[in-house]
Design a protein around this nucleic acid. Structure first.
Lengths: 192, 192, 192, 192
DNA sequence: CGGTAAGCGAGACGGTACGTCTTGTCTTATT
DNA sequence: AATAAGACAAGACGTACCGTCTCGCTTACCG
């Protein structure tokens, strides 16, 4: 049978509460930023009890991760334009575009959790970061096959690229705009 | 008169309290990590009143910044070995060496503050990050003058290098060891 | 027809669930005392849903009242030894004997409910306390008829006797033992 | 030196906060009764943080005890009219008069705590009940010396009298009015 | 024998209180 | 004037219980 998601006994989970919580998370991120994003505030704004919140998400980190997942359509577009420079440029421009102010604040909230607590870092890595690295890695592996970059270069490029993104985001070094996308694409493509 | 630091009336600031606070900050970072590094805990462990703490440092961020400054000898060694690859390698290896566990926890505490609060990000950038970037920039500018890298390449290299460092640190991607130093140095030196 | 308890349609009430609930109530009273005697805990220990619990008992008070009723054989023995002193002594000694540790904890749970909420007090009075007063009143009325005590004396004696019992129980003034039974019997019998 | 209450360093305790808390306790008892008398509600109504509440009182019981102490002028008047009946009557009438609706609700709150938790019962006994018993005991001991009642009769009378008071209060048996005072005085005086 | 209806377990839900913790400010006496 | 001592308002933390609700399944009867 395909019906692996057998209906369990008991009152089913309220999809409305779930949506309200994720919406409240986005609103709070937008309005107050990471500092205002407390479990207490999420429950209050969503009109939901704290017990419901803690029943489904063990920590703020998990809520934010799910809010982010819900927000983006989950499939990361993979350009294939024939050269590493072009592919990278397209990929990073797309990344920049999808990173609006609210998303950036959610990401900063995640970074704050990760920095403060290694177990949260593990969680975020496994549930969020590996996916992004995986997508980018496909582009890089294609370039490896084309001989544009070495295997070792591809490996470190993942850190260089995403590192520069988070670095700018967390410390407000400079905006994550098309200029950044172009500069990074150009630099990495040059790593032969 | 040379005495520009005019003696003010009243009881002078206690150097002992200052040392106790910075020592307590290091100890807490070492023992409990960023989560245990609260102003409350620092005052408690230092045997100092919170009043004194807040009189001289407006936030935990400032305390951590000063503890870090006290810890390292402030002058960042600048290797000059004739090539970007060699200089970068030496510089990053040195960076890796000086980043022991306690320092890493202090840096993660800083990152948590920066991520959660843009005004803290500003502070950390101005009082800590710009210095590191300045040091690395000297190495890169030397390479620019030697024609090893373009001006634009040097600019983005700063983000790529430090970005990958913080990225690994915050999210626990991989250790900051000599392998990392070598891979980064090699990749950046290849950006012609 | 004698079948006054007309069979209603639908699944009949589970006697097993009822027994499990009353048993769980006694166990919890014995193990944890009044504090641990929550509706939540009763349902959990009985392996019964809260729905079932609230369907048949509107409050914890009602559950405890029924558990107490089930526990004692409901008929309060009425000694008739010819004198108020002897009757009272026998009655109170019997009361003391039947008040084991678990019963005392159930009674304290009832007192806590009554003290906190007048509507619970009403319930307990009507469903529990009036019976005990009725039994004792029979003994006293017999003494009134024998001229051993006045009507007014009998009336206030009910409060004095049961009052001292609850007072000792609730505030831990002193144990409810035979010494208490004797002292009370002696004092009340002297109220001519 | 007599100045045993040496001024300690640090910000002194706020008498205003203390008064606000005790006032809030009385108001809540008057408005909502024992059920509405939570630490949370007291702090809210008093405009005080929960930390301040818990700093000075470890439990709701302690707050209520202090509110009661503040409320009555602490010295229990001891009538001396020459006979046990007269003394008891006067004493209990005074007790009835001072037991207004708010006081009764505070006492019921205490009883609820005592019934639910033996350690609270201990606290209430030592800090409240022993004083009342002590006052009444003085009246009874005077009667013992006059030969109006035996030592044993005096001992159990304490339980009978206060027992009947709490019994009526907790279970709403009957009002604590002058009729009660008279009936109890008459009955106890008859216990020769 | 199939329909009807209540009972039941499981468990989600909004609400509220608990007691603890940290933040940043404040108010003292002492140094 | 700086300090330690520590009180204070504010508010988040994660847990517990309350009483209600909404499911699917079970167990009777009744036609």
């Amino acid at each position: 049978m395909v019906d692996s998601e057998q209906r369990r006994p008991g009152r089913p989970r309220s999809e409305q509460a779930r949506q309200a919580i994720l919406a409240a998370t986005l609103e709070l991120a937008a309005d107050k930023g990471p500092r205002g994003l407390s479990m207490e505030a999420i429950a209050r704004r969503a009109g939901v009890s704290k017990e419901t919140l803690y029943r489904w998400w063990r920590s703020k980190t998990e809520v934010v991760l799910e809010a982010l997942a819900e927000r983006s359509d989950e499939t990361i577009p993979l350009p294939d334009e024939g050269s590493l420079a072009a592919d990278l440029g397209a990929f990073l421009r797309d990344t920049v575009v999808s990173g609006d102010a609210t998303t950036q604040r959610l990401l900063r909230a995640l970074a704050a959790e990760a920095a403060a607590d290694p177990s949260m870092a593990d969680l975020i890595r496994e549930r969020f970061i590996v996916r992004r690295r995986g997508a980018l890695d496909q582009i890089l592996q294609r370039a490896v096959r084309r001989g544009e970059i070495s295997q070792a270069g591809a490996a470190i490029a993942l850190d260089l690229i995403y590192g520069s993104l988070w670095y700018r985001l967390i410390f407000g070094i400079a905006p994550l705009d098309n200029a950044w996308a172009a500069a990074v694409a150009r630099a990495i493509a040059a790593v032969h």
